[in-house]
Design a protein around this nucleic acid. Structure first.
Lengths: 156, 156
DNA sequence: CTCGATGCAAATGCTTTGCAGAAAA
DNA sequence: TTTTCTGCAAAGCATTTGCATCGAG
């Protein structure tokens, strides 16, 4: 059982996510609209970390009439039901990524080209728990970001 | 040689910071004004992580006529000359903390009462370098934040 | 039909800047 | 006197929301 690639999402995986979304909406009495299907679909298909503007652009490529507020509210919905995570890196904009529940990952961010590389580190992960406990905290989540220059930008 | 307390700043330490600021301003041909002295002073004296509004409030306690923009520009100046660090936690506001050059520290943040506890972890610190190298990055800085509930808020 | 969803445009909240008067040097 | 700094108010910008209309159930 190899580590699943995060480059792109297999169709089956996307179907699973769409299924979870449908289940959540049904449970909450929310409606399945063409916009929600479109926005969630382009988001699930796109690997990486995207701002609202980026998700809007992707959605508008398929339907130019989608509004910013709809993308905003749909992404909020995805965060609510645990299918997306909101993240803030150096700049002012909020970015969204698909939430992976199987394993945590953190980020290496290139200050020059803004490239974002994901990594996993179970060693640090375990350490955090112990640390939190030492201060009486019960951990909910964490953020571990390393900022620097990627190999390519170092050469310039 | 014990670990220096971060609770409050010794007067001697504050003088040292003020000295560094003066040196920087002189080098850059900037002027020493009563506002800059006041804002940097209240900031150096206050332990913790403060938003612009908080620094403004502290400054206005001593001189009600200080303007928001002056605090904004003074804090920017302190960041520029390396005496303060800018940080963004969960919310939308930027917070400032005194920059400690001797050792790094990271943060435990209570999601309920917003309390911020600092911790040091040289073990993780060393690990990060190795990790970055594995991906060809040269590290510049990092952010390691643990979010959860503090002992007090868990009881509620 | 009904009530939630959409899209627009306006409001918000924080940050940043232009400018005329004030104050260092 | 010259040049930088201050304080106000206005501009920027990403995010959020009110509301009339649209469309799923």
């Amino acid at each position: 059982m190899g580590r699943p690639s995060r480059e792109r999402m297999a169709d089956a995986a996307i179907d699973a996510l769409q299924g979870q979304l449908s289940a959540y909406m049904e449970r909450k009495g929310l409606r399945s609209t063409s916009q929600r299907r479109l926005v969630s679909d382009v988001f699930f298909r796109a690997a990486g970390h995207h701002s609202l503007d980026e998700v809007l652009a992707m959605a508008r490529a398929e339907d130019p009439r989608v509004g910013y507020a709809t993308v905003y509210r749909t992404m909020k919905l995805l965060v609510e039901c645990g299918l997306a995570n909101e993240r803030q890196f150096g700049d002012a904009v909020t970015r969204f990524e698909i939430a992976h529940h199987d394993s945590h990952h953190d980020h290496l961010i290139c200050l020059e080209c803004k490239r974002i590389v994901e990594f996993e580190d179970s060693e640090v992960e375990a350490h955090q728990e112990a640390l939190a406990q030492r201060y009486g905290f019960s951990l909910v989540s964490h953020k571990h970001e390393l900022y620097g220059l990627c190999a390519e930008c170092q050469r310039k």
